[in-house]
Nucleic acid binder design. Structure first.
Lengths: 198, 198
DNA sequence: TCAATTGCAGACACTCTGTTCAGTAAACGA
DNA sequence: TCGTTTACTGAACAGAGTGTCTGCAATTGA
């Protein structure tokens, strides 16, 4: 017995209603009744499943995050050598599928808490990846891996947000990844048009 | 007649009370009464000055932003040639002085709205700066200046947040600036310890 | 089919909001 | 210094939203 069908229905409906409404009016502006009305569910039912709207939001984003890390796992394992960009590409694909939710999270809705969780999770994973990679290839980082991870994730999130907020995607995911690789290899100085200094 | 002293006193008190309390409990958890109590001001007085707590927060952050851009102006004008890092250094100094407020904003309190304003303002200014610089030095950007600006600002914000959230600053501002310059020049690949590829 | 579970509608006390107002205190200009 | 202007106070107000609880109806899984 996996779960009562009614339970599943209600939870799903409430989740999607939340996402829709946050996109339309913003998280703080929403009422629990707004959500239940959109989901066509009684208000009392909401409280049977979630403590409050923050709780609902937290669960929705937590699900998204675990879905992402599942999809990322093979790509990360595969590109164990260097900066292949495979995980980034996979993330962009995921973001494309779950565009609405990504928008909401990246806008920092809900006091930015879901976003911080997202960022921190990415930063931790990236830090470890950097450390492992340095070890494997026997090189010494010129900058602390943790800081470097923060920089990398910050860049990542900025690009992701920009990409996801566009009404008509100006660049395909593969292009974005190539660009980011170029940046990682040559630096911003090169990217802005200058010749690399000796 | 600049402004009534009582008015100034009340506004200041409410502003600092807000910052303190957001740092302690988070923005959404706060009540208008919490703020007025901390500020030792009648609740009715609050509404004589601000529409709601969002309004208060918006004004506090707007003030911070204009203060920052004032301080940045000379540094930007001075470093018209290339990536001197002077504006970044000035920003870090400012962040050090207004540490509490910077923390709050960078945490995305208030549904991330103040942060978005901050980021967008920086991104616009940076885009223009990049364009102007390319024009002046007669080089053609290899990546769209607007995207490059987003990347740069994203990195910036990530570092800023990391730096401001540390209990005991592990790196002095000047060190951070030098690091960022290195990154801009050589890229992350180099920073993580690998030799630059031919 | 039947027992168990979930959803439903409505009511409840409670907290917070944003507004109003008459009385009091402080600041200002001359 | 004094009169006038202005801001602050404390209290009360209706309204909206919250979170909880009820008995009853509908669905479910076995």
């Amino acid at each position: 017995m996996a779960e009562d069908r009614r339970t599943r229905r209600s939870r799903r409906a409430l989740g999607t209603a939340l996402v829709e409404l946050v996109l339309e009016r913003g998280f703080t502006a929403l009422t629990v009744e707004d959500i239940t009305e959109r989901a066509d569910v009684a208000r009392a039912t909401f409280y049977a499943h979630f403590r409050d709207k923050e709780d609902l939001f937290a669960r929705v984003t937590a699900d998204l995050l675990s879905e992402l890390s599942e999809r990322l796992a093979p790509a990360v394992a595969e590109s164990a050598i260097g900066f292949t960009g495979k995980p980034v590409l996979e993330m962009l694909r995921h973001a494309h599928e779950e565009r609405d939710l990504y928008r909401i999270v990246l806008r920092g809705e809900g006091d930015g808490k879901p976003l911080q969780m997202f960022v921190d999770a990415c930063a931790r994973a990236t830090t470890e990846e950097f450390r492992a990679r340095a070890e494997r290839n026997a090189v010494r980082p010129r900058i602390d891996p943790e800081l470097l991870a923060r920089v990398w994730v910050g860049e990542q999130v900025a690009v992701l947000r920009w990409w996801v907020e566009q009404d008509t995607p100006s660049l395909p995911a593969a292009e974005v990844v190539r660009m980011l690789l170029d940046l990682a290899l040559h630096g911003r100085y090169w990217a802005s048009g200058f010749e690399p200094p000796a």
